[in-house]
Amino acid sequence: MEHRAARGIAAALAGLGVAAVLLACGGGKTAGEASPGAASAPAQPASAAQAALTVNAVVAVPSAWPRTLSANGSVAAWQESIVSAEQGGYRLAEVLVNVGDRVRRGQVLARMSVDTVQVELAQTRASLAEAEATLAEAQANAERARQLQTTGAISAQQINQYLTAEKTAQARLLAQRARLQSDELRLAKTTIAAPDDGVISARMATVGAVAGNGQELFRLIRGGRLEWRGEVTAAELSQVKPGMKVVLALPDGGSATGQVRMVAPTVDPQTRNGLVYVDLPAAGASSVRAGMFSRGEFELGRSSALTLPQAAVALRDGFQYVFVIEDQSRVRQTKVTLGRRQGDRVEVLSGLPQGARVVAAGVGFLADGDLVRVVEAAAPPASAAAR
């Protein structure tokens, strides 16, 4: 009896559970009836479901771009002075500067041993004192002879001898004074001084070495000034004018800005190129070094250019294409001709009207006529329009 009662209670509870589930799911409706929420849900558009890519759009707008002219050339010293020994045969006692040092005009670069010159200078000074004493005695004798000339106390021959001795003593004194000046000049030349302000670019002087007459001891970049000598073709030479701005691309990845100082009046008959001399920052003020080979861009002026991001251009079969957005969802592959490049943007010369909306990136995954979903329209950066 107890088992039968338990089975009856379980069956009743199961029936109540099934009824609750049916009420919760159907809301009291039959299985064939549809709910209002399901009937009001909109259907998805076919174009969105078939979109090949979700893209950003960019508008082709004109910008003011600089017109440039490229050239190659080398960096060199504006003027390089060779500092040499003005007299030879003396040992270098001191070398006071090294390569890269900035020096001032008249600054001592090296000194020679002066022992020999000082001894010779002392001898010359002694000879000068002797010549002065001889002259004083000769002048006194000549003066007495002049006083006795009318008295007849001494002969005319003796008077002439005294007068001649006076002139000879004067000449010897002048010779000793000239020799003294020569020895003092030799002593001064044992000190090697900078002929101008600048930077030491080379040093051949070594302490203890005997310098020869005219031997090169130092090289000096005058004023520390450097210049870039760009080679420009004869056809392009007329476009370059003094005062133009030039930007150099340096080997270390940096850049330097210079200004055209002079355009060569002649053209090399072998290469048909002319030189353009560009003033650069002083040596040490930047990473520019004499002897560097660099590429330069002359800024000739500014002109209007229709520009796009380089990522919007696809290269296929040797031609450039962009994808113009039509009807807000379909793209059309359009062939274009490109021109100048600046940063991440490129100039479109032909094939694209101004104001056209094109796919900004990911063009390598698209084909002509594909459906796309445009998320946003990207405006050109302000920096591109201000260039």
Rank of each mutant, 00 (worst) to 15 (best):
G212W: 04
A282P: 07
E80Y: 03
Q50S: 06
A156S: 12
S70H: 02
N213S: 14
T134V: 07
Y162S: 08
T190S: 15
A314Q: 15
G318V: 09
L135H: 13
L352M: 11
M292D: 07
D197N: 15
T168A: 15
R186A: 13
I9K: 07
A34C: 06
S329F: 05
F293Y: 15
R4C: 03
A193K: 12
Q333L: 06
V99G: 03
G355S: 12
E347V: 11
S238Q: 13
A175V: 10
A256I: 04
A290M: 01
G223H: 03
P281N: 11
S74V: 09
L174S: 06
V75W: 00
V363H: 00
P269Q: 09
M292V: 11
A314T: 13
T266Q: 14
A60I: 05
A378V: 15
A11C: 05
V322R: 00
R341P: 03
L250F: 05
G224K: 03
P380W: 01
G230R: 01
R7Y: 04
V108T: 15
R4L: 10
A314P: 10
A178I: 07
L92G: 06
A282R: 06
D279P: 00
A175E: 13
R332I: 04
A285L: 05
N273D: 08
K189H: 15
L163S: 11
T164E: 11
E297A: 14
A41G: 02
A41E: 14
V324D: 00
R144Q: 14
G230I: 11
V372E: 02
S40V: 15
G296M: 09
S40Y: 10
V288F: 02
